[in-house]
Amino acid sequence: MSGGDVLVSARGLEVHFPIGGGFRRKPAGVLRAVDGVDLDIVRGETLGLVGESGCGKSTLGNALLRLVPTTGGTLTFDGTDLTGLQGRRLKELRRRAGMVFQDPFASLDPRRTVAQTVSEPLEVHGLRTGRDKATRVAELLELVGLDPGVAGRYPHEFSGGQRQRVGIARALAGEPDFLVCDEAIASLDVSVQAQVLNLLRRLQRQLGLTLLFISHDLSAVRHISDRIAVMYLGRVVEIGPAEAVGTDPQMPYTQALLSAVPLPHPKLERERKRIVLTGDVPSPAAVPSGCRFRTRCPYVFEPCDDVDPALQPVGAPGQQAACHLHGVVGTPATTPEGVTATP
């Protein structure tokens, strides 16, 4: 792990959801959306979190802000334990940590003007009132590259990129230290994606933000991040400096993921060997025993069935991967529920 001052830290973090169930009904099973995540986010860095749909990356992002309840493990923000945080202290966390959402068409209340949306954190936390509030809104809109004159307009009058800028302005209104961007560019056109990526990078530097950039787009993550964490089925399976993870991945899943990213270079594409994984990601309701990637892994061997691999240092300094190919390290599978793999 790179040195420096850790802002957000998760140890064995779990977010499990009951499936079915309700009033006097027993749940039919457990969905392990986040299932034992160890993660440190260093102050001032941009950490990219990649993974495919259903891997739990969004749930993890939401859990770090206490937007979904955690069911196990520990979570600290700037030294404060977040699990069980209530009332005023939870509210203060929400000021210090902001979130930018995926769909800019859904994340803005259609019945509230841009100014009303952006000023909500100011009102909620009693930060500014009256004329100060209006000045701050103008300041925020300029910060994200919007004309303050549009403050009185409604979201439907804006393009996707502009709406996303409004969403970013709202997230920044409380002067947070930490910003979670959950697929913040996924719904935008390519040329607009670039605008928003550049904006986020500028804001991160300018405001000294700590950024968690969650995306399924490895190219974008590689572009914006200092470090990259790869998630698979509720677990971080590889983490390290962006350069190292992007060029020399140590976990077979990361290798496959990287090789599947289409590159806009026809000649390169023709020569490139693609690792095509067979089958689908198992359901987070039926996580395989041992290594959770073993049902699709091309290198699977005996210990993979029984031993759940732990992150261990491999490759470049600061790089870690959870894979037995680098030596068998981890906890033997003794799950009493008898969760078995579906072939």
Binding site: S191, L197, I224, L258, P264, H265
Partner: peptide, 28 residues
């Protein structure tokens, strides 16, 4: 513009610094 706006996995960093993406201003 479209090609310049793509973050490129193949060749990102120049001297350890990732340059900003080129963008096409405005909207279609």
């Amino acid at each position: 513009g479209l090609l310049g706006a793509l973050p490129d996995l193949a060749q990102p960093a120049v001297d350890g610094v990732v340059p900003d993406l080129a963008t096409v201003p405005g909207v279609p």
